[in-house]
């Protein structure tokens, strides 16, 4: 499904990714762990097409996408700090990718309602995103990424900064949601317990690189 081979990224002569290779099968949930500054986020940004790799290749479903622009890759990314569009309300945030695809408004409304129900926040559809709580914002960020039906979903420490109770509840809900939809997922975290609870496989970023 997602196959990255020998990725190399260097920032101002500091190596960030050194010959990193990773493979994720269809429908698999893989957790990627590693200390801060080890290049986890950079790897996600390279896969999403937001960073350019110095060398190496990225294949998705057999097609090479290394040089493909981010908006054509169909790879979803949920940011650590959500990055919901502040000028749009909850429903408009979720509908963003659907409108870009040119889907008719009626169908957009249906899909938004469906995904809101999935994350249990139907009652918040018209709320301004700056008024959401931390947990609500996380759910909306995941819903926004899922509604675009990405081939792969990348989660960049999506549950960091939440209180333990909310963390446990959201982790469980997120796991159920991804499995029920069969979403191929790369979940970055530095929390081993979180990785064990959600993933089929756990990888350490340092072990993926050939120094």
């Amino acid at each position: 499904m997602l196959d990255c081979r020998n990725l190399v990224v260097t920032y101002e002569s500091t190596p960030v990714l050194q010959n990193l290779s990773i493979y994720i099968g269809a429908g698999e949930i893989v957790a990627l762990t590693g200390p801060s500054g080890s290049g986890k986020t950079t790897l996600l940004r390279c896969i999403a097409g937001l960073e350019v790799v110095d060398s190496g290749t990225i294949h998705l479903s057999g097609e090479e996408i290394t040089a493909k622009p981010a908006h054509l890759r169909r790879i979803g990314l949920v940011f650590q700090d959500n990055q919901l569009f502040p000028h749009l309300n909850v429903a408009e945030n979720i509908a963003y990718s659907l409108k870009i695809q040119g889907i008719k408004q009626k169908l957009v409304d249906e899909k938004v309602a469906e995904v809101l129900e999935l994350v249990g926040l139907t009652h918040l559809s018209q709320r301004e995103v700056i008024k959401l709580s931390g947990g609500e914002a996380k759910r909306i960020a995941v819903a926004r990424a899922l509604v675009a039906q990405p081939k792969v979903l990348l989660l960049d420490e999506p549950l960091s900064g939440l209180d333990p109770e909310l963390h446990t509840r959201l982790l469980q809900d997120l796991g159920n949601l991804l499995r029920s939809r069969g979403t191929t997922t790369l979940h970055v975290t530095h929390d081993q317990d979180e990785a064990k609870a959600i993933a089929d496989r756990i990888l350490d970023i340092n072990e993926l690189m050939q120094h």
Partner: peptide, 23 residues
């Protein structure tokens, strides 16, 4: 404007022109 907002739009399928007009 946080650069990640624009990154988010790109991963949701927005081209550069669309990103400028919608975000």
């Amino acid at each position: 404007i946080h650069p990640h907002l624009e990154d988010a739009a790109r991963t949701l399928g927005a081209s550069r022109t669309r990103l400028f007009l919608t975000v």
